[in-house]
């Protein structure tokens, strides 16, 4: 394995980590502020991807498609917050799990109803379809590089939003004492809807960005949702910084494990057994990572008790 290939895989790991961060940031915000576990977050990811694919198919514009994904997911998020989620804040986690599980069924089957069971394709815009040459002569797909840049920019924007703006102050205040900020005259239910729609928009954007690399299909959100849970468990619930570190760790472990473990086993095994054992172990690597973090820090790397 050459260094060039390794660097390419590291970039792939970064790219998938950044996309995971967009999912995990919304989940962790929603949990931090409202104390809600939202299984339907993967459905919002799917809604974003389908909206983007439909708009791209109709207009041919990728930028419009991305905007559609943001708007559709945020709108879907705001609607389910006002109709369903709002009733769940003072329920126990079991009710939240069940109600959002029901939402997944409704979203998935509803999407299948509207768009059919066949995957849609969202094309990478022509200008970004080719590779770019990075310093050192590495050829890397321009689109994936753009995803990394966009994701990092959003992460920076999110940190600024939380740290510097009025709504960010309200979000942080909501995390530490929601009765108090309600008493101080902040419209709590509006704040909750905004936070939920913000998280939904991030998930929808991630769905659209990843949808251009993979196919857009029903059920695409749940595997990402579960990875995002692993990210949050590693990073610590409620911590955006934890979500970023956790997402990059999970993205890199997952991508590099899939490449390196079969090679590592190939050193002392024959090729086909090494591939089998290596890829089976690689599929477990992030969960093993999660187990190790749990052994040493049950509340995650950046979690508070």
């Amino acid at each position: 394995m050459t260094t060039l290939l390794l660097i390419e895989q590291v970039l792939n790991g970064l790219q998938s980590g950044i996309m995971l961060f967009l999912m995990a940031a919304g989940l962790t915000l929603i949990f931090g502020v409202m104390g809600l576990i939202n299984l339907a977050h993967g459905s919002l990811y799917m809604v974003g991807a389908f909206a983007a694919a439909a708009v791209a198919g109709a207009t041919g514009s990728f930028v419009l498609a991305l905007m559609a994904s943001l708007i559709a997911a945020a709108a879907a998020g705001a609607v389910i917050e006002m109709v369903v989620i709002r009733r769940l804040y003072d329920r126990d986690h079991l009710d939240q799990v069940l109600a959002t599980f029901a939402l997944i069924l409704i979203f998935s089957e509803g999407t299948r109803w509207v768009f059919g069971s066949f995957p849609l394709y969202l094309d990478v815009p022509a200008a970004l379809a080719g590779p770019v040459t990075l310093p050192g002569g590495i050829l890397y797909p321009a689109y994936r590089l753009l995803i990394i840049v966009v994701g990092l920019a959003i992460a920076a924007g999110l940190f600024l939003l939380i740290a510097r703006t009025r709504i960010g102050i309200q979000i942080r205040a909501g995390e530490s004492d929601r009765e108090m900020i309600g008493a101080l005259g902040v419209d709590i239910s509006r704040l909750y809807t905004i936070v939920f729609a913000l998280g939904a928009a991030l998930a929808g954007l991630a769905g659209a960005l990843v949808g251009a690399i993979q196919s857009v299909q029903v059920g695409m959100g749940e595997p990402v949702l579960i990875l995002a849970f692993v990210v949050i468990v590693i990073g610590g619930i409620g911590s955006i910084k934890g979500a970023l570190v956790g997402a990059l760790l999970v993205g890199l472990t997952d991508t590099l494990g899939g490449v390196l473990l079969p090679l590592a086993f190939g050193v002392f095994m024959d090729a086909s057994t090494a591939t089998a054992v290596g890829s089976a172990l690689a599929s477990m690597s992030i969960y093993i990572l999660m187990a190790i973090v749990l052994l040493y820090r049950p509340t995650g790397l950046f979690g508070t008790v």
Binding site: H93, I226, F229, V230, S283, A291, L295
Partner: peptide
């Protein structure tokens, strides 16, 4: 492992470990 935590952590961790077996079953060709 999971009972070291509680609440939402416990839900997410059990879900993740379940998924670990799922992916293992898919990628184990024997």
């Amino acid at each position: 492992l999971s009972l070291r935590t509680s609440g939402v952590y416990f839900i997410m961790i059990t879900l993740a470990f379940g998924q670990m077996f799922y992916y293992f079953a898919i990628s184990w060709p024997a």
